[in-house]
């Protein structure tokens, strides 16, 4: 028999103990990506060429190159410039920076989806720039982006095994360690897959629900002529 149930059950607690690290890396990375994404989106939309051009180029570079090599760069090369970070910090920053370029695009599409008339009406009503952004544009551009951001949270969660490359002991590294102790990889890696599935599938379902809910609310608001 290939699969040993007793052995599989015996390693479950050890795998479960690695979940908090995986979740912490995901959430911290996501918060960082959300925070960095907004100024990045604003800079990319800016009319100042000296600001929009370099930010666009850097974001494009980060987005088109693999996370794992970026992580190697931060983890192995930055110390020679005097910047030393733990594997966890490096992982969070690497993950956050990588996905901030994706979230910037999400924000940008949200901002661009606000009809021109809203800007023009704000100007006609003599609203200040800050007032226009905070009370008119952002409240309308945030809700449609929420499901997309939820999707990226799940994508980042599934990307955390990459952090094992810089020695962070998350789920996959734990499974690999268990496997190398007993030379049984099948149970450990299968369980990791199942754990990922049972965590990401309900989240994806929730995001879909939210999407439908927001779409319905939007339609209702539109039909009430708001």
């Amino acid at each position: 028999m290939w699969w040993d149930w007793n052995y599989a059950w015996s390693i479950v607690p050890e795998l479960l103990r690695a979940i908090p690290i995986t979740l912490a890396a995901t959430l911290e990375g996501f918060v960082l990506a959300c925070l960095l994404g907004l100024p990045m989106a604003l800079a990319k939309r800016s009319q100042l060429r000296w600001l929009s051009w370099p930010v666009t180029a850097i974001a494009e570079f980060i987005r088109c190159t693999p996370l794992i090599i970026q992580l190697f760069f931060y983890y192995y090369a930055l110390p020679s410039f005097g910047i030393v970070m733990s594997a966890m910090t490096t992982g969070v920053i690497g993950l956050g920076l990588h996905y901030s370029t994706y979230l910037a695009e999400v924000y940008r599409s949200g901002i661009d989806s606000v009809p021109r008339g809203q800007w023009e009406a704000s100007r006609a009503l003599n609203f200040s720039r800050g007032h226009t952004w905070l009370r008119i544009v952002l409240p309308q551009s945030v809700p449609p982006t929420i499901p997309v951001m939820g999707n990226y949270l799940i994508v980042m969660f599934k990307e955390t095994p990459t952090l094992s490359a810089i020695t962070l002991v998350e789920l996959l590294t734990t499974a690999k360690n268990i496997g190398s102790q007993s030379f049984r990889y099948l149970e450990a890696f299968t369980l990791v897959g199942i754990l990922f599935l049972i965590m990401s599938y309900p989240s994806a379902w929730l995001v879909r629900k939210l999407e439908v809910h927001l779409g319905r609310r939007e339609r209702r608001a539109a039909s009430h002529g708001r």
């Binding site: 996959l172 499974a175 099948l186 299968t190 897959g193 599935l197």
Partner: peptide, 18 residues
């Protein structure tokens, strides 16, 4: 629903067990 790297490891390290 599972991660690409997990699938990669599964194919390479776990399939030989079967």
């Amino acid at each position: 629903g599972t991660s690409l790297l997990v699938q990669l490891f599964w194919m390479y390290f776990a399939l030989p067990a079967m």
